[in-house]
């Protein structure tokens, strides 16, 4: 398993990288490479050129402010996960990152790379989608933002054009009245999940006002479902959680594969939805409570 030949450039600046990319329709961007290089070695991908952006120091950052967490294209998962301020501004990011593969992979793999790889089984795209985040992309003709809702087109397919580089992912800050949670079931520790769920719950006056969940490994794209309707009284009850599970299952079209049948995935959707909604609700209540006191 060895890659097919390719040309290789290692630009020192973003401008140079964008220029090369624009001039070479057959080029692909190499950042962490933790998903790309196996594809190359298995010869499932054979780009004519790799544009290695690892030398572009300006893309290596994690910046957090009241609005949210901005992750540069070269920030490794491990850096984002280890960033205390980022964990505070948007705790869901850290919760999900802990579930991305194994630490050794997180030492090299990049968070932005995971977003644009657009794998329906990956954690970070779901987090971005659930939080209504966005990515900033650059090309030789300028920059634009792509909202998460417009980013994931299909399995392993994002709306980036071939001459664009995702330079930053933006994860909005957790609202003062919100709580988040993440959970997944995988066959082995560190494997892609059989089903994973991220939850975002908002409360007001002690009552739930919004419940949204995002699902990975259930459908072939990251999928967000609004479950607020399951909580008409604004409280978490066993019946409401059952209804939330029903709503989620109705909104999803789970796939079968060698590791899990679609009906089993439905079961996991219910179980995990219940778990993360309860946890996110508790999180929200504790945050609001802390605010009050």
């Amino acid at each position: 398993m060895k890659p097919a030949p390719f040309e290789f450039v290692r630009p020192a600046s973003l401008a140079e990288a964008l220029e090369v990319l624009a001039a070479n329709p057959d080029a692909k961007v190499l950042a962490g490479g933790q998903s790309l290089i196996p594809l190359l070695s298995m010869r499932l991908a054979a780009p004519g050129m790799l544009v290695d952006i690892n030398g572009i120091g300006e893309l290596s950052y994690v910046r957090s402010d009241r609005e949210g967490v901005r992750v540069g294209a070269l920030a490794r998962h491990a850096e984002v996960e280890g960033d205390a301020r980022a964990r505070e501004v948007q705790p869901l990011l850290g919760l999900a990152l802990r579930q991305v593969a194994h630490p050794t992979i997180r030492n090299r793999g990049t968070t932005v790379g995971s977003v644009v790889h657009a794998d329906g089984s990956a954690e970070i795209p779901v987090v971005l989608a659930l939080l209504n985040g966005r990515v900033a992309v650059a090309s030789s003709s300028g920059r634009r933002d792509i909202a998460a809702a417009d980013l994931f087109l299909g399995p392993m397919e994002s709306s980036l054009k071939h001459d664009e580089i995702a330079v930053e992912a933006f994860f909005p800050a957790i609202e003062h009245d919100a709580g988040v949670a993440f959970d997944e079931v995988a066959r082995r520790n560190g494997d892609y999940a059989l089903c994973g769920v991220a939850a975002h719950v908002r409360v007001s006056g002690g009552r739930i006002v919004s419940v949204r969940t995002g699902y990975l490994s259930v459908c072939d794209v990251p999928t967000v479902v609004d479950l607020t309707a399951a909580f008409p009284d604004g409280v978490v009850t066993p019946a409401a959680l059952d209804d939330a599970g029903d709503l989620a299952v109705a909104a999803l079209d789970p796939v079968s594969d060698i590791h899990a049948s679609a009906v089993y995935r439905c079961r996991l959707v219910r179980t995990l939805t219940r778990r993360v909604v309860v946890a996110a609700h508790e999180h929200a209540m504790s945050r609001v409570g802390a605010e009050v006191s």
Binding site: F8, L30, N54, T104, N107, R108
Partner: peptide, 19 residues
């Protein structure tokens, strides 16, 4: 170990490792 951190050497290109 790459700058002290464990990484998979099969998931890196030699040309990317000079730093």
């Amino acid at each position: 170990l790459v700058d002290g951190r464990p990484m998979r050497s099969c998931l890196m290109l030699a040309v990317s490792a000079s730093d």
